[in-house]
């Protein structure tokens, strides 16, 4: 009888490390997308493990819309310094200067400019041929068919019908000039895996994930943060609600959930009985096909 068994989290960790090392070995200029959320925290932790005792062999890239929560900026600057990573922040200054926002221009246009547009711009400026992202296949149904190495043409676009088969643990990273790959090392992780790994490894996360009394308005089924600068509809009355965020995005488009989970154990407990998916609080996903369309345009 063999005593050589990995737990499922250890096996996922090993797979992710293998993927990261393949990319660094085979690509000229990789970068890691860093969105400050829990999946990014896990990715950064895995990268440190993958290249220990050496330094991180790539920079982190934060595509900032200017609409992130204050706590996210604070956490980002502290954590990046803490682990000694190099951070590049890129914003679509043009669109920000013109006052791009989801209320007036609509969510699709706002995301298109501040996220997808800024991302493609940043990748081009940096000349990156591979970009790590923290997307997971369990998040959304168009992501269930995403490859670990997702080929993008010179416009950063995804063609779901023209993706390479991935067999065993062999990743084909050969690309033509101008093309690039998006690499998803935590493809096979679920939301629960991420939370359990954060607990096992004591990985720091933005405090917004923990429940506390926060100023909110109720809009339809959503709890929308009523923070400074937030756009409120007529008749909306902010009130204090014990709540937390399951995922973090831009303040105007990220809803919170009622919760009393003030610890990682509490979050795991909630995740294990959750009946609704975490992306439900992300307004960008709603509407038919929206993730599939956004991916085709160059989004993660």
């Amino acid at each position: 009888m063999s005593q050589h068994k990995l737990t499922q989290l250890q096996e996922l960790e090993s797979e992710s490390i293998h993927i990261m090392r393949e990319v660094v070995a085979e690509f000229r200029n990789p970068v890691m997308l860093y969105s400050v959320g829990k999946d990014s925290s896990v990715m950064l932790h895995l990268a440190r493990k993958a290249f220990h005792p050496g330094p991180l062999p790539f920079s982190l890239l934060h595509v900032d819309t200017g609409y992130k929560f204050k706590e996210m900026y604070e956490f980002r600057d502290w954590y990046v310094k803490e682990v000694g990573a190099k951070l590049i922040v890129h914003r679509n200054e043009d669109a920000i200067a013109k006052g791009m926002n989801p209320q007036e221009f609509g969510v699709a246009r706002c995301c298109g400019a501040l996220k997808t547009g800024a991302l493609l711009e940043a990748l081009e400026i940096g000349g990156y041929d591979a970009a790590f992202g923290g997307a997971r296949r369990d998040e959304e149904r168009s992501r269930a068919k995403e490859r670990v190495f997702s080929m993008r043409d010179s416009f950063g676009q995804w063609d779901p019908k023209n993706q390479r088969p991935e067999l065993w643990s062999l990743y084909n990273g050969r690309i033509h000039d101008g093309e690039s790959v998006r690499v998803f090392p935590i493809s096979n992780w679920t939301e629960m895996d991420v939370w359990q790994y954060i607990r096992e490894e004591s990985i720091p996360i933005v405090p917004l994930y923990y429940a506390k009394e926060r100023l909110m308005v109720e809009r339809g089924n959503h709890l929308i943060p009523a923070e400074e600068g937030q756009f409120l509809l007529e008749g909306e009355e902010p009130k204090m609600v014990m709540s937390r965020y399951r995922t973090l995005g831009c303040m105007p488009c990220t809803g919170a959930v009622r919760s009393s989970a003030t610890t990682i154990e509490g979050i795991i407990e909630e995740a294990s009985i959750a009946t609704r998916s975490e992306r439900e609080t992300r307004i960008i996903d709603h509407g038919s096909n929206s993730m599939e369309d956004k991916k085709k345009e160059g989004y993660f």
Partner: peptide, 25 residues
């Protein structure tokens, strides 16, 4: 998962699904 598949009512590509029981993922 993909719009093209729902239109045609067929599965074209490999899709990855995740579920777990108290014993296994």
């Amino acid at each position: 998962g993909l719009a093209a598949e729902r239109e045609q009512g067929i599965t074209i590509d490999v899709a990855y699904r995740y579920f777990s029981t108290p014993k296994r993922k």
